[in-house]
Nucleic acid binder design. Structure first.
Lengths: 410, 410
DNA sequence: CGGGGTTAAATCACGTCATTAATTAAGTCC
DNA sequence: GGACTTAATTAATGACGTGATTTAACCCCG
């Protein structure tokens, strides 16, 4: 009861205050390394004394280390601080359509080890995936020589809707998964803290943390591949909605009664601008085994002056622009990032046309305040983004499971 | 700089902690009056001792009063607490197309006085509006016998986009207002704290606080009148976007290349389901001076079996359902509330058809978790919702301007 | 090379806060 | 009217952030 009091976390005691301040300092330091105590004090609004105290704790605990100093001209030099990148590690898992990839990162998000497991396209059974992931975890730990007690957590990006409840459930249309309790299944094989999310959302996170989204408070990361999805960021946080299925931009209706979509509805955006749909709208045969090379061929054909290809792309820009305009009108984001392999391919060529279509379909005021850009990270970033899930938990105050570190000397 | 540290308000000292706890208690009490200290302790997670302390302060300051007790069977009876509804007052202003309405409420949102000023439809000049508002403020204060020092603040709902910046600017398409610094203009005539927002948004607030939206964390309040808009609530808070123009649902494209909208674009939702658009799509003459009676007549005609009217309404339900489905897919709200005079009129008759169309255009999972309901408050609620703006500020810890009340006896 | 000047960081003293435990208040029931 | 219950207040305790003060670290200049 009492919906108005939603303590995302217990808050009210003087101790929670410390935890929060600690967290604020960690976030600030994480994204602005190296920096000095003074800068932290300014950035967070905490007094220099408090910064000193908390930082001393963090250094004692090994999360933070001093790293040189800034030369002064008269006066004690400021000491630079940075996160101790070896204090802990995180693992990101990308469960894709054709492979499972497991990557181990240090706190600076430097890759320390990687394991790839190709998937037979006909074999997306749950047990196979779980096996591959668990094998990957062991492999990267062994490879990097990292003990599992030093791992802060594992983030897993999977295709399909991920329902975050008491029990995390995965509904994977493409995989034929229905309410798969992936977390529970993985739990049988590992003790590491697990975070599971939709792969498109983890990729969106990667763009927000390290790519084109850095610094934006309100943004939408659009992912166009064979299908179409989006990550919505409001006030710097991913909007999940009430059952974590928010962001299904691809099934937004842009043409009532229009083309049939694989979701069963008619006129979905995905049925016009998804890679599969674009190729289908073109209709003619194209060289290339897979969608990726076929789409590239379509772009080439248009460049070569092939009329029909040009027309299809022109229309794609129109539809896509209208879809982006919906986001602009509804969310009023400061930035829209176009990603996904098809999004990048199309965007590279069509961005001006897309922007123009978006302008025509959105209100002038909101449009003028929104920038539309291409993603910077490419589709490889799913695992990276997944790995930011445990990082976030860490920055918010979780420590390594084993040692419950308290102040050592009183 | 340092976007990650967004102290919506200074937080970090032990004193801020108290302010926060105080605020949490006020919110809890406000929406669950009367209630006991014990209940508050449970609801907020604060210890009974802290609740006692803070409540004692609040009683001393006159914000809260004891009001009877609950009978016990053995044991000291629990004392009931409620807000002191006369501790302060708020004023809500509804600047509509045809009138300016000013209402004064006590803390229990009981109306204490009202002033109405009809507007000549040809006269929407800024000075006229400002004059009417200021006259209304004086009138309701005099009428209710309330001193302006007892007023916590004034909320103003206006048509058009309200840009919340250092200086609040109003862009009113319908009024022909461009970047009107309404706050500054009003400031010349009153010292009361001012809050200005879009009228559709204040109405949405009213539904969320007192109507069909109570208790929802993620919701969308859709307002259909002559035009179409929406208020998006995420995590219990209105989403404004980066320049406070979020929620322009009416100009979402549901038909690329479709009907021309008054915004200049083609295929906007508003061009299909706004009252003006519905009547226009019907085409034939209808009895009634204004849109409201014309739309009612259209509904009557359909009831009477007039085929074309039935067809227009059927299509309206289809378009509207598709529009709602977009919201469901993008936001995954737990509740959608259909309001506005036209929304209520249409919804009363078409809700099943609208729901069905929404189902067909949204993903099954998200749809099944969303309820679509009619608003409960009617279009009169703009002023009520505007008045919740200063209430919110008050519950968050602002006190009356004059007396900076501190603990009296140490 | 050593003191004066300057700035950064650590320490100290203080006031505030929420919590637990103990105490007081206000009832019921036999 | 005394034993029992439960609510609310008070007291004791520990944790915290802050401003003031002190210590540290480095420059420059003579």
């Amino acid at each position: 009861m009492r919906e108005h009091v939603t303590p995302e976390r217990r808050r009210g005691t003087v101790r929670d205050l410390r935890r929060d301040n600690r967290s604020v300092l960690l976030w600030s330091l994480y994204f602005d390394q190296p920096c000095t105590r003074q800068e932290l004090s300014q950035a967070t609004g905490l007094s220099p004394a408090s910064v000193s105290n908390v930082i001393r704790e963090l250094i004692e605990e090994g999360l933070v280390a001093e790293a040189g100093a800034i030369d002064s001209d008269g006066g004690r030099p400021r000491v630079l601080l940075r996160m101790n990148r070896d204090h802990g590690y995180v693992i990101g898992v990308d469960v894709g359509e054709t492979r499972v990839r497991v990557e181990l990162f240090d706190l600076a998000m430097e890759e320390r080890a990687r394991a790839d497991y190709p998937l037979d396209p006909r074999e997306h059974g749950v047990t196979v995936i779980v096996d591959r992931i668990l094998a990957g975890l062991s492999a990267v730990l062994a490879d990097a020589g990292v003990d599992s007690s030093a791992v802060l957590g594992v983030g897993v990006g999977v295709p399909g809707v991920v329902e975050q409840g008491d029990e995390v459930l995965v509904h994977g249309q493409t995989y034929g998964w229905e309410a798969v309790p992936l977390e529970r299944l993985l739990r049988a094989g590992t003790d590491l803290p697990l975070h599971i999310d939709n792969g498109a959302k983890t990729m969106g996170r990667a763009e927000m943390w390290f790519g084109a989204g850095r610094g934006a408070q309100h943004a939408v990361v659009c992912l166009i591949g064979s299908g179409v999805g989006a990550t919505i960021i409001a006030h710097g946080r991913t909007h999940r909605g009430s059952t974590s299925s928010a962001g299904e931009w691809g099934h937004t209706t842009i043409m009532v009664g229009g083309r049939e979509c694989r979701c069963g509805a008619k006129g979905c955006l995905e049925a016009y601008v998804g890679a599969e749909a674009v190729l289908d709208r073109y209709g003619r045969a194209l060289p290339g085994q897979d969608e990726e090379s076929a789409l590239a061929a379509l772009l080439d054909a248009a460049t070569a002056g092939e009329e029909e290809a040009g027309r299809v792309l022109e229309e794609t820009a129109l539809y896509l622009g209208a879809g982006l305009a919906d986001l602009i009108n509804l969310f009023n984001p400061e930035r829209i990032i176009l990603g996904g392999w098809a999004g990048l391919l199309l965007g590279e060529r069509l961005l001006p046309a897309i922007r123009d279509a978006a302008r025509r379909h959105s209100l002038a005021h909101a449009f003028s305040e929104t920038s539309i850009e291409l993603g910077r990270l490419g589709p490889e970033a799913v695992a990276l983004g997944a790995a930011t899930l445990p990082i976030e938990r860490f920055l918010n105050g979780a420590s390594l499971s084993s040692a419950d570190r308290r102040r050592s000397a009183g």
